[in-house]
């Protein structure tokens, strides 16, 4: 009896934690399940009959694949731009002392603390008053803007965790500033930059609220889902959702395994 009480005392927090994880994964399981569903009617969300047709006929619903492609493109361009802008800023903040540091930090923090609703409507107000045609370009502008801050924070953290003496050691060993950057700083910061880029891509690809205000007639994947919700969601949407989940998970596992293999040799 005593032993059981002890065990419960030690494990109840873990048990609650695992239940919360189940809650987090429940919808994922449903999405994966529904990706194999042949719905009974267009507006039905319930499981009806097993089929692999949604996976084989992914581009069946009009415009779905085009929307996914458009999101991927915007995501890619926004990621490249935001990663470059953000990485430069992170280097400035982590490696230099200068006047206006606090203001810069605030400028980077604010977009992360502002609801998307406010940023979306602000940009819309700007674009309409400037007479800019809403569409691909305005979406891209918006996505770069809200990705930059996350890139700065991620890369800056990596830079802060890096021993500044490594760069001094490189200089001491005859590396010019350019060589120091190329041979020491960049390889060591790269994991942070890659992580920031992945984060930026997923933020951009999945953004709905800001995009919704600034897209005009351009349809990204989230916009497609939103629109389809009124007419009835084609089950292929769940295929895209499941595939996104699987790809991202594989990416994370791959980097994890690589890290583990490197770590295993230490022991």
């Amino acid at each position: 009896m005593h032993r059981i009480r002890r065990w419960v005392a030690d494990h109840w927090v873990l048990a609650i934690g695992l239940m919360v994880l189940l809650y987090l994964f429940l919808p994922i399981a449903v999405v994966a399940g529904l990706s194999f569903n042949r719905p009974s009617s267009r507006l039905s969300y319930d499981f009806n009959e097993f089929t692999t047709e949604n996976w084989t006929n992914l581009c069946g619903p009009a415009d779905l694949c085009a929307a996914v492609g458009r999101s991927a493109w915007i995501g890619l361009l926004a990621t490249v731009a935001a990663t470059m802008l953000g990485t430069l800023m992170a280097f400035a903040l982590a490696r230099h002392r200068f006047r206006g540091r606090a203001a810069t930090n605030l400028l980077i923090f604010l977009p992360m603390a502002t609801p998307e609703l406010v940023m979306g409507t602000s940009l819309l107000a700007l674009f309409t008053s400037a007479g800019l045609q809403l569409g691909f370009v305005t979406i891209l502008i918006a996505h770069i803007m809200f990705c930059v801050s996350f890139v700065v924070v991620t890369v800056k953290a990596r830079l802060a965790g890096m021993d500044a003496r490594l760069e001094e050691a490189a200089m001491d060993l005859y590396a010019t500033p350019a060589q120091t950057f190329r041979r020491v700083t960049l390889p060591l910061v790269l994991p942070g930059i890659v992580a920031a880029a992945l984060l930026a891509f997923s933020l951009s690809f999945d953004d709905f609220i800001i995009t919704n205000f600034n897209s005009g007639n351009t349809v990204t994947f989230p916009m497609y889902v939103w629109g389809a919700n009124q007419r009835g969601i084609p089950p292929q949407v769940n295929v895209v959702g499941t595939a996104m989940f699987a790809v991202a998970l594989l990416l994370v596992l791959a980097t994890n395994v690589r890290g583990r293999r490197r770590g295993a040799r230490v022991a």
């Binding site: 987090l24 919808p27 994922i28 999405v31 319930d46 919700n229 895209v240």
Partner: peptide, 27 residues
């Protein structure tokens, strides 16, 4: 680390798609 990935993993799916999944669960 595995559990940590599990916390983030649900966000890998589209926000709208996983919200719609709740529509199925709560239907």
């Amino acid at each position: 680390n595995v559990l940590l990935v599990c916390v983030v993993a649900p966000m890998f799916t589209s926000f709208l798609v996983r919200t719609l999944a709740w529509k199925t669960i709560l239907s």
